[in-house]
Design a protein around this nucleic acid. Structure first.
Length: 346
DNA sequence: AAGACCTACAACCGCCTGCGT
DNA sequence: CACGCAGGCGGTTGTAGGTCT
């Protein structure tokens, strides 16, 4: 036995709301409030389903809603919370004044997901792709690794291809030049440089390069005992379960979050630094301590985030954002033996 | 200039949960 | 306790407007 529909579908209008309908609904709610959505359309003179009215009101007409662009701080919050609670959009939206779950969900699906992918972070697990590769490599014997790597490739190949081709990034995986790059090369300790050189559209070639990256990751896999046994991505749910029982969960969330993305200061609001650049430099294998870390900050801020061109010819991909270029630092940043362990996940 | 393609966002759908009877 | 209903939620689809070729 199916569920009784919330309204007779024959008599209700669907699709886009007109300004007249909006006015009717708004003025009715202003006078009578939002009790009993089933009656509201009838009483307000609308040929709409009560549910449709409720959605229109909560997602669009409510006077306390913000309609503009999401700010950096809001995006930060979304990513943080998503890393802990997953797709609990209403929970996330509750932490953002004036934003609805629908807003947050749409923003995540259209922008933030791609942004994270572009930075080499898996938007589902919030782990760097290099971490995933390392996990594959450390948990399986060689014959299995090859198969699983293929499967993993299948999982994010499409997304990567989309990013690579849409944004016209040409990934040229090549060994570090022997010594010439000490001052000019990207200051991360990856086994490869990844150049972003403008137009290049050979998908098959790209797939091959990704495959090469995977096999390289397998070859260079760290010893099994080098990966931390307590995986924050596994425990994050548990953290949240505990945190949820209190009302102070945002604090708990921030605690859990920097486990995955680096030191807590990554998210401190220190002036004009883009939170994205900070995330990107602290992801898994990318983050190298000391001078290299500092130089990378300088590089990102001076040469790239400010709209410049870095010394290797890399260009900012999308006007005004650092998101795609951040991928230069982390995407296919293949794990060398101890690279992954430089910033053990506490 | 026109069609194809892409993006962002509004709206819908169906399931789940909680509450009143 | 069972049932029915309203509201909430997350996933998915539709579409308008912008961009690219």
């Amino acid at each position: 036995m199916g569920r009784i529909p919330c309204c007779e579908k024959d008599n209700v209008k669907r699709g886009q709301w007109t300004p007249e309908e909006d006015n009717k609904l708004s003025s009715y709610i202003a006078q009578h409030g939002t009790r009993n959505w089933r009656l509201i359309p009838k009483n307000a003179g609308l040929q709409r389903c009560g549910k449709s009215c409720r959605l229109r009101w909560t997602n669009y007409l409510r006077p306390d809603l913000k309609h503009g662009q999401f700010t950096d701080a809001e995006e930060q919050t979304i990513v943080k919370l998503h890393s802990v609670v997953g797709n609990r959009w209403s929970l996330i939206a509750a932490q953002l004044a004036g934003r609805t779950d629908n807003d947050v969900k749409n923003h995540w699906n259209t922008k933030l997901k791609k942004k994270l992918s572009g930075m080499g972070i898996d938007p589902v697990t919030h782990k760097p792709f290099s971490h995933l590769m390392a996990e594959i490599a450390t948990t399986l014997a060689p014959p299995q690794v090859a198969h699983l790597a293929e499967a993993a490739l299948g999982c994010f190949k499409d997304e990567m291809l989309h990013l690579l081709t849409k944004n016209r990034i040409d990934f040229q995986i090549q060994p570090h030049p022997p010594s010439t790059s000490t001052t000019t090369a990207a200051p991360h300790a990856s086994a490869y440089n990844i150049n972003i050189n403008g137009k290049h559209d050979e998908k098959e070639d790209t797939i091959e390069k990704i495959k090469l990256g995977i096999s390289r990751a397998i070859q260079e896999r760290p010893h099994d005992n080098m990966l931390p046994s307590n995986k924050p991505w596994d425990s994050s749910t548990a953290n949240f379960a505990g945190a949820c029982s209190t009302t102070a969960f945002p604090a708990s969330i921030s605690g859990g979050y920097h486990h995955q993305y680096g030191p807590p200061s990554s998210f401190a609001n220190d002036g004009n630094r883009s939170p994205w650049s900070q995330i990107s430099i602290c992801t898994g294998s990318t983050c190298n301590a000391g001078d290299q870390h500092v130089r990378l900050h300088e590089k990102l801020e001076g040469g790239i985030i400010n709209g410049g061109e870095d010394s290797e010819g890399g260009k900012e991909i999308r006007n005004g954002t650092s998101s795609m270029f951040a991928s230069d630092c982390v995407l296919w940043d293949l794990p060398s033996d101890h690279d992954l362990m430089k910033y053990p996940i506490v």
